[in-house]
Amino acid sequence: MKKNPWSASWRTLITALVALAFFAAACGSDASEGEASSEGEASNEGDEGAAVLRIGAIPDQEPERLQRTYDLLSDYLAAELDVTVEYVPVTDYQGAVTAFRVGDLDLAWFGGLTGVQARLEVEGANAIAQRDIDEAFTSVFIARADTGIDTIADVAGLSVLEGRSFTFGSESSTSGRLMPQSFLAEAGIEIDSSFDGAPGFSGSHDATIEVVAAGSFEVGALNSEVWDSRVEAGDVDPSEVIEIFRTPPYYDYHWVSQPELDARFGDGFQDNVVAALTSLDADDPDHEAILELFGAGSFIVTENANYAAIEAVGRETGLIRS
């Protein structure tokens, strides 16, 4: 039986048939969807008036939460600006910068560092708006409760973290990496040599809370807004993880727009985008959910010059080199 060449052929035939059946089934369900999307593309290219505004964001939070946030915002912007708005999800911070670089995103929600990186790669791109909290943003340092690390009073006090195991969030995060690294350096902590082992990069702010709570790392640094909202929602167990330090303020998240928005969508379009964002009102029940998901009271106007300090820190830490 084993030496019979037919057994191998039968296996193959069955394999091939299963694969085919699988594909046929998959394609059957796709037919209508495929046509719909090709129609969408055709109208995008054919008619200037029905152009699609593609928005995206650095994935600093859980994908579902981002989807919820940007679905709501897309609907709002579509109604305000009278264009089709499409949210393009991206899986990592550098993916967002890349998507902006190649022009797949018209409007992107960046962190301080990624925003500067994106503007350096797309000449003429502009920082146009940010949240009220972004002009004085902070990071928090958190620790596992059983480490016995006390609350730290000032930046110099971060030196007690020498010899601890430590995790950042994403490599390209401003509040989860760049600024914490800069404050640590101020306190004399070098990330390559002062910690117990090399520092980790958890990937996102939520993941930082998770890995510190799980005990994989003793200390971590993350976005204070994410931390506050998780504490408020009761997602953090204070017997497991505690806040030990809050950094001095700096400029962080902001919207960056492509340079030729007015040319593509009509004169004054960029100003209209800014107006739409800044007129989101926490007292308006229709706007409340959007602002709450952004963790903001309102959006305010911003400009490139606000990020000169971030750019300088980026150059010091070697995260901006061009």
Partner: peptide, 15 residues
């Protein structure tokens, strides 16, 4: 894997 193994071990041209 199975497919690739079967092709590799097949003796006749059928597979």
């Amino acid at each position: 894997d199975r497919w690739s193994s079967a092709v590799r071990r097949a003796t006749g041209p059928g597979v």
